[in-house]
Amino acid sequence: MPSRVLLLTSAFAPTMGGAESYARTVAHGLADAGHDVLVVTDTVAGTPPRETDGPVRVIRLGGYRGLLEDPSKLPWEQLYFGLLPELADVVAEFGPDLILANSLETTVAGRVVADELSIPLVGAYHEHAPLEEPLGIGKTMLGYRRMAPDLVLAGSHSYAARALAHLPAERVALIHHGVDTDAFTDAPHTALLRQRVRARYGIADEDLLVVCAGRLKPRKGQRELIEAFDSLGHPALRLLLVGGVSSASQDYADHLRAQAARIGAPRLRLDESVTVQEMPGILAAADIVAQPSHSEGLGLSLLEAMSAARPVIATRIDGFDEVLTEEGLALRVDPEAPEQLAGALEALCADADLRRGLGRRARAHVLARFSLRRMIDRTDALLRELAVPATVRGTR
């Protein structure tokens, strides 16, 4: 039966990123499947503390910030538990049947609530390389082993392998991330979106627009893409980088901004303001999508571009190999290889038939194996099996 799902996520739309996209996608999908979904997340400037995002309610907690700045409080104490007073009020009002924690850090608060109410805790973890972070072994063991989620939803084989190092197989479910193939599409109605977005960035009809979406961090490979793009000197080629600095590298972002300023608009634009909701329009405007990552868990941006039937340049990395399981779905290049990126860009610029063929095959592949419907159906079934409604708990 449907349940009340409390989704805890450090960030949510309009913040961009793979974890944020997953949170919004799974929240909407579960709500459409009949669950009552409440998202609890951090405050973002310009957003109300309570809002409705389609079928999902969103509550943004920010009172903890005042506790951190209150001289009468112990900052360390508030650092770890300052969120709990606000969260307790939300929990009392909502009465969840199940907690879905969208990151290792939210699992800590999730475990507190789950134990308080004797309800299941589910984890969906998107940290790319937590073992490489400061005290990463301890942090990873805390999230998986000590917090002991009742179920981990793993979006790729690498995430599943990480969970299986700490949890028994029956508590790990491999469910590949899926994308909304109705939103990310090449259907006729996207033609108007394409015109609007290209006009916003000063892209002429005859120009070829390359789009790269991702957080501004070194492993995303934007620097190599700019180098490849700049080496071509193609008069009609334009490059649009979209992404923010959330949990990323400010120094690296500053470098990319300097490169964008040097090359100048309209040849190269860097837009840090694009939201998750705007991405279908961004991809509709693209002629080519480049995803030059050095490493990925799976690659939602890659799947979204493929779903939109865009020809893609993707690096040869394990995460992308899990998506690109057949030949003819994308042009592949080695990571950190600007000369190969340049060659792939040149090949796509010169061959419209190649662009159309890659895009057509890519969309068919996503429809068959990585659709949102497949992901939500499996997730829904597992959560229904796991959730214990409050009415049943009260009879125990």
Rank of each mutant, 00 (worst) to 15 (best):
L61M: 15
E227M: 05
L79K: 13
D205N: 04
L345E: 02
S158I: 11
Y125F: 09
S247F: 14
E105N: 15
I175V: 13
R50H: 13
A160K: 05
D150I: 05
R4K: 12
D254I: 01
S246F: 05
P389S: 12
I288A: 13
G394W: 15
A148K: 12
I317S: 04
R194F: 05
V112M: 13
P218D: 07
A31C: 12
E346F: 11
V56E: 10
P188C: 05
F184G: 02
D32K: 07
A23T: 13
R363K: 01
R384N: 08
M147T: 13
A160D: 08
W76E: 10
G62H: 13
L142T: 08
R65G: 06
E327F: 00
D70I: 11
G328R: 03
E227V: 10
D321A: 10
G233C: 04
F370Q: 02
A337K: 12
H176Y: 15
Q340A: 06
T379V: 07
H157K: 08
R145S: 08
P389T: 08
A314G: 10
D251R: 02
Q195C: 07
H176K: 07
R369Q: 06
Q195K: 05
R145P: 10
D89V: 14
K217N: 09
L6H: 12
D205K: 11
D351N: 15
D351W: 11
A381I: 00
Y125W: 08
A228I: 03
G202T: 15
K220C: 02
W76D: 08
G394H: 14
G66Q: 06
E133P: 06
D180Y: 14
A364C: 01
L372I: 09
Y201F: 03
T15W: 00
E51V: 14
L348K: 08
L324M: 02
P134D: 06
A236Y: 11
R360N: 05
V276E: 11
G143A: 11
L240H: 07
I263L: 09
G319T: 11
A314K: 04
T185L: 00
Y125A: 02
A114W: 01
L208G: 02
R223M: 07
E116I: 12
V274G: 00
Y125L: 10
T181E: 05
R257V: 00
M141D: 07
S371I: 01
A199I: 13
D182F: 05
I376N: 08
R198K: 08
E86W: 01
L283K: 00
G214F: 00
S158C: 05
A390M: 15
L225R: 03
P188Y: 10
Q78Y: 14
P335N: 07
V333F: 15
F184C: 01
E304Y: 10
E93W: 12
E346M: 05
F81S: 14
R171F: 02
R355L: 09
F229T: 12
A163L: 00
G138S: 03
D42Y: 15
A258R: 06
V323G: 00
A228F: 02
R316N: 04
Q291S: 14
L329Q: 05
R373D: 14
Y125E: 06
D32Y: 13
L61E: 05
D150L: 09
